[in-house]
Design a binder for these strands. Structure first.
Length: 845
RNA sequence: GCCGAAGUGGCGGAAUUGGCAGACGCGCACGACUCAAAAUCGUGUUCCUUCGGGAGUGAGGGUUCGAUUCCCUCCUUCGGCACCA
């Protein structure tokens, strides 16, 4: 028996798998399918982090088990390669991002292959490959044509360090999620995706999927649905009249409804208690009053209001929340609102505790029933009116009858800022045509726009689908400009183009898409990665995503998707949005992209800190594979602790796991010798397990535990049980081959290289990959002899070895007969004797 | 502030329809092998102890024959949200 030499074994089997295409799959209707998915990595220059193998090994173990259970398993891999780090590296070094990406991908590939992950490499995708992003652009065009993409000038979150606009989801505590720089507000024209139109569907869909509970809650909170009412408040007459006198109607930018202030409330039943109103500093009412000031008598504190609004605008989101303790505000003197319920005039204030971006940017304040309003009212001595809230139904009926208000559902979710002013992303396949814009302004009477995108965005014309992909041109400089334009804008040659519609001179959009674009649909491409007619064929999508007989239309999705918690509101939500949209236009067969979603915890450096290059505490997987072998690394990472919790790295633990594998390897000597001697004696040519010894019993208990624990992702306890078994095995002089083979099979998803080698040493010619997963014998897995605990007054005083089926009477009498127990009873009569089947006898004195 | 999860030996962690706390691994100690060391193997390892036992799962209380597990109050840590009307 040779020494355990992981370096040799692991290379050998990795080569074997690759040469035999062991993990490459084809659609096969005769077999049940299983689609397992990990979040494809961003190929950074630093290479693989030990966090990657944690998620990948977990799904690898599940995938390998499924293959042994007879499933046709799709376990694909790819690279999410657009993004800032590569671009920044290009800026620093002048190397083209495409080149850098290629190099990084090849390094990642080498590293991933060295871990023995059972990916189907033939289906590999790369989001920066024009053959891939052709379809990312195609999806964008569909969104555009269906009116879900629109360009809008709006204040965006601007990161002055990355020089990039950020989606709301990318701003954490008022800072850039990526670099931590406080974000500023900038007014920019941006492409937006109307994810809010899918708010209800996204919420509804959560009911049907099996996601880790935390992920569901986070998505629900992010979507933030609340039911309530829109209520109209009339602004008191004298103001309206005086404004009209000033001739506001002739001014195009004057507010249309200057006589009405509309609010959203979840508590219309407290309308009677509304004693004042508050508008956000950005509210159009304030802007219009400042633009068209009325006479000093009616609006005496114009300067004060101006000053307040100015200072509020200067504050970033970060400052606003930091200064949340004290509420500030200024009354808009000279105007009054009328509470439609009481008919009374109430004051209107401007204050930044009311957010411009939510609801209508204005509220009715009910200090008696709202903490914030109460705080504000107390500070500024505003009236507080106690009321008895009306029944919700009654008040809604009344509001609707009087045409004061109507039911309304409100969301926190905002539309998705989809433009990035960067080079290394998918070009947006639209051009701006001034001639077409003019036509759109004066469409003839029964003119119909070819699509909603052109109607909503006059002058913006989509490229023809046949002309995709619109490839990213090579540029000389990758720096974004301070004005916030993408480096593409400097390429006049590329920017100047012909309008695909009228043939006239037009200019290309120079913004690119955010990273989230390519990763929103990659799991679809894996089903049919080389298709150049469609993003993937419907037939293949159906095979991999739909259950054999869907109970409902649109049922299905990736069977099991594991990824990080940090992606629940970004990637997961965006991806669900795109998939739901693609389902609605008939491009994909399932409503939801993922049936089941689980999450892994982070791997921290020793001491509990995050691993980071600057702290120098990063563990390099290459080094661990080199020193201990991939099988040890895999098994250790799964053994570290509960899969969904953060764990600290400890190389000593890895040594312990290596010892375990060495011990298992050593067992084979005994087993193979046993085989020889058995075969010589002609006892067992076909190995069959002895049915009743205690080893077989422990083995079946282990099979049961490993089978169940893998499904529940309790990898740590599955490994612990296998360690226990191997400890017992090593105490035996002989192990039956049948038993040893069962053990090798259940260990193989964790340590696949070593188990392949053992399997072939046992004389098998085929890979262990498709060997049937062992079934445990429930009878054998049960304990035959059990230990009963005997307690006196709740304290353990003795234990009894008894047969499993012992009767209550016998257990009690044996417990009472025990010498130790008699001593504790001191001759007293027990008050009560309790028997818990198979567990204990409790005696109360 | 609100919501959620968690707190167990020297360390990572097991054990939950309430039933022998500390599985498994690390570390440590002792022993075997060795001239010696490493590796390996074996034994032990919650704490206290007068060796009878006693205490013990963040703290305090409660329910129970019996609580790491259930209930109440509090403390600490981590994660999420943070004026969302």
């Amino acid at each position: 028996m040779p020494k355990y030499d992981p370096k040799k074994i692991e290379k050998k089997w990795q080569k074997f798998w690759e040469e035999n295409g062991t993990f490459e799959v084809k659609e096969d209707k005769k077999k049940k399918k299983f689609y397992s998915l990990i979040e494809f990595p961003y190929p950074s220059g630093e290479g693989l982090h030990v966090g990657h193998p944690r998620a990948y090994t977990a799904m690898d173990i599940i995938s390998r088990k499924r293959r042994m259970e007879g499933y046709n398993v799709l376990y694909p891999i790819g690279f999410d390669a657009f993004g800032l780090p590569t671009e920044n590296f290009a800026i620093k070094t002048g190397k083209p991002p495409a080149e850098v990406t290629k190099k990084n991908i090849s390094n990642f590939t080498r590293q991933l292959k060295s871990l023995g992950l059972s990916f189907d490499w033939s289906r590999q995708v790369d989001t920066t490959d024009p053959k891939y992003y052709k379809w990312t652009q195609w999806i964008f065009l569909q969104l555009f044509k269906h009116g879900l993409a629109y360009k809008k000038a709006m204040p965006i979150n601007w990161c002055p360090s990355c020089k990039i606009g950020l989606a709301n989801e990318e701003v954490v505590d008022g800072k850039c999620e990526r670099c931590g720089t406080p974000v500023e507000r900038r007014n920019k024209e941006q492409w937006m995706l109307a994810i809010t139109k899918y708010a209800d569907k996204l919420l509804e869909g959560l009911k049907e999927v099996d996601y880790i509970e935390r992920a569901k809650v986070q998505q629900e909170n992010w979507i933030g649905r609340s039911e309530g009412a829109m209520i109209k408040f009339v602004i008191a007459n004298e103001v309206k009249q005086s404004q009209t006198k000033k001739g506001i109607a002739t001014s195009p930018s004057a507010p249309r409804n200057d006589s009405v202030l509309e609010v959203f409330t979840t508590r219309p039943d407290t309308l009677f208690g509304a004693t004042y109103m508050v508008v956000a500093p950005e509210h159009e009412l304030v802007a219009s009053l400042l633009k068209f000031p009325i006479s000093n008598f009616q609006f005496p504190n114009i300067d004060e209001v101006k000053k307040y609004v100015e200072s509020a605008k200067k504050k970033s989101d970060l400052e606003r929340t930091e200064l949340q303790k004290e509420k500030t505000g200024v009354e808009l003197k000279g105007i009054k609102a009328i509470n439609p319920a009481t008919g009374k005039e109430i004051p209107v204030w401007v204050a930044d505790y009311v957010l411009a971006g939510y609801g209508t940017g204005a509220i009715m304040a009910v200090p008696a029933h709202d903490e914030r309003d109460s705080e504000f009212a107390k500070k500024f001595n505003l009236p507080i009116k106690e009321i008895v809230p009306e029944p919700m139904e009654k008040i809604m009926k009344w509001l609707e009858e009087k045409k004061i208000g109507e039911k309304k559902v409100q969301y926190k979710l905002r539309d998705w800022v989809f433009s990035r002013q960067r080079y290394w992303g998918e070009p947006i396949p639209l051009v701006f045509c001034p001639a077409c814009e003019k036509q759109a302004e004066f469409p003839i009477s029964n003119f119909q726009f070819p699509n909603d995108g052109e109607r909503l965005n006059p002058g913006w014309i989509p490229l023809a689908e046949e002309d995709l992909p619109l490839e990213l041109p090579k540029v000389k400089k990758y720096e974004p400009t301070d004005t916030g334009e993408s480096p593409l804008a400097a390429m006049e040659k590329w920017v100047k183009t012909k309008c695909p519609k009228c043939g006239g001179p037009a200019r290309r959009e120079t913004d690119t898409m955010p990273n989230w674009a390519g990763s929103s649909w990659y799991f679809l491409r894996y089903c049919d990665p080389k298709n150049d007619k469609k993003l993937a064929s419907m037939e293949k999508l159906k095979y991999w995503l739909c259950p054999p007989k869907p109970a409902k239309p649109g049922e299905g999705g990736v069977d099991w998707y594991n990824g990080g918690m940090e992606h629940t509101v970004l990637h997961l939500l965006y991806s669900r949005f795109w998939n739901q949209f693609l389902f609605d236009i008939g491009a994909v067969p399932t409503r939801e992209p993922y049936k089941k979603r689980t999450s892994h915890g982070m791997i921290l450096a020793k001491g509990g800190e995050k691993m980071s290059k600057s702290k120098g505490n990063v563990v390099n997987p290459d080094e661990m594979v080199e020193k201990f072998g991939a099988d040890s690394l895999r098994t250790y990472i799964m053994f570290m602790g509960p899969f969904d919790q953060a764990v600290e790295w400890d190389t000593n633990g890895l040594i312990g796991v290596r010892r375990f594998l060495e011990r298992v390897w050593g067992l084979n000597v005994i087993a193979s010798e046993a085989k020889q001697s058995q075969t010589k004696k002609g006892i067992a040519t076909s190995p069959s397990a002895p049915r009743n010894d205690s080893m077989t019993q422990l083995l079946h208990q282990t099979i049961k535990k490993v089978t169940e624990d893998i499904e529940a992702m309790r990898f740590n306890t599955a490994i612990a049980k296998m360690m226990e078994l191997s400890n017992e095995f090593s105490k035996q002089a002989k192990i039956s081959i049948a038993n040893f083979e069962l053990f090798v099979k259940i260990l193989s998803p964790f340590a696949p290289h070593m188990c392949e080698e053992l399997w072939s040493l046992l004389g098998h010619k085929k890979s262990i990959t498709f060997e049937p997963w062992p079934k445990y014998d429930p009878e054998l897995a049960k304990e035959k002899e059990i230990t009963l605990a005997v307690q006196v007054n709740g304290k353990l005083r003795d234990t009894l070895e008894v047969v499993a089926g012992i009767s209550e009477e016998e257990a009690k009498s044996r417990a009472l007969a025990s010498e130790k127990i008699q001593r504790w009873l001191e001759g007293k009569q027990p008050k009560k004797v309790i028997y818990v089947k198979g567990k204990l006898v409790s005696i109360v004195v």
